[in-house]
């Protein structure tokens, strides 16, 4: 895995670059995931608000709901849930696609046709995942906040302007920048794990299924580990 990642960096920074394939992968990986991510983000924001409400009311701080939901969505839930869904959708599809390409010798065929399959398949997909997940997370954050706004409005009438003032007032660069930066790493993890599992898939159709499955599992675990590291590093860096 480490060698695979090292090879990724070696190959990614050397010509030739597969730009048109990269754009195509960005479309497939990014744009095509938007509806799923958007739906889950919306529900997440709505449900989070509704679940938080009873305990906030008990302490008489229901006015703090937008601030709390805002912070938790931007800092943690938006990135991590989106990344996990991304891992489920993209990690498995990359794993299965590359796995089946390996099994049906398409990867070999590519190599024979004068294409570096590592560049053409692995680099493009990993880069696309790395670049697209942050975009998805930003959109998901916005959608989740909108969901949360509706969640608040189920019980009380709150102007959108006040809601957004409450959310923004309690956020700082400290909350947003690390949260965005870590999503690049999440995306990279999903891409590289999916590619790794697919690229070295064992022969047979069973191998394809296994690589898709283990790509999701491994990517999810990596996301959590990276998240933990991100918290520690953020604390360290921001306090310098």
């Amino acid at each position: 895995m480490a060698r695979f990642t090292a090879r990724f960096f070696r190959e990614a920074f050397h010509p030739r670059y597969e730009f048109s394939e990269l754009i195509r992968q960005c479309f497939i990986i990014g744009y095509k995931s938007l509806s799923l991510v958007g739906l889950t983000a919306f529900i997440m924001g709505l449900v989070l608000t509704m679940q938080l409400r009873p305990s906030m009311v008990r302490y008489g701080v229901e006015a703090e709901i937008p601030a709390m939901v805002g912070i938790s969505i931007i800092r943690e839930i938006g990135p991590i849930i989106t990344a996990l869904i991304f891992a489920g959708k993209i990690g498995s599809s990359i794993g299965a696609e590359l796995g089946s390409m390996r099994v049906t010798e398409q990867i070999d065929a590519m190599e024979v046709s004068g294409t570096n399959p590592f560049k053409y398949l692995v680099v493009t997909r990993t880069v696309a995942a790395t670049l697209m997940l942050p975009v998805l997370v930003i959109l998901a954050d916005a959608i989740a906040l909108y969901g949360s706004y509706l969640g608040v409005n189920i019980y009380e009438i709150l102007s959108f302007k006040l809601f957004y003032t409450l959310v923004i007032d309690n956020l700082g660069y400290y909350d947003v920048i690390p949260a965005i930066i870590k999503t690049f790493f999440f995306g990279f993890a999903v891409g590289i794990v999916g590619c790794f599992k697919g690229y070295y898939s064992s022969k047979g159709t069973e191998g394809v299924g296994r690589s898709a499955n283990s790509a999701v599992v491994m990517a999810s675990v990596f996301i959590f580990i990276l998240d933990l590291l991100a918290v520690q590093i953020t604390e360290l860096v921001w306090n310098l």
Partner: peptide, 29 residues
């Protein structure tokens, strides 16, 4: 497809910039 992708990425970037703009009012770095 490329146009859709462009719109998608652009929407994300615009949101991010907007977000930072609002935060900058807030934090006035």
């Amino acid at each position: 497809d490329n146009v859709k992708l462009g719109v998608f990425v652009l929407a994300g970037l615009v949101l991010l910039v907007l977000f930072f703009y609002m935060l900058s009012k807030n934090e006035s770095i």
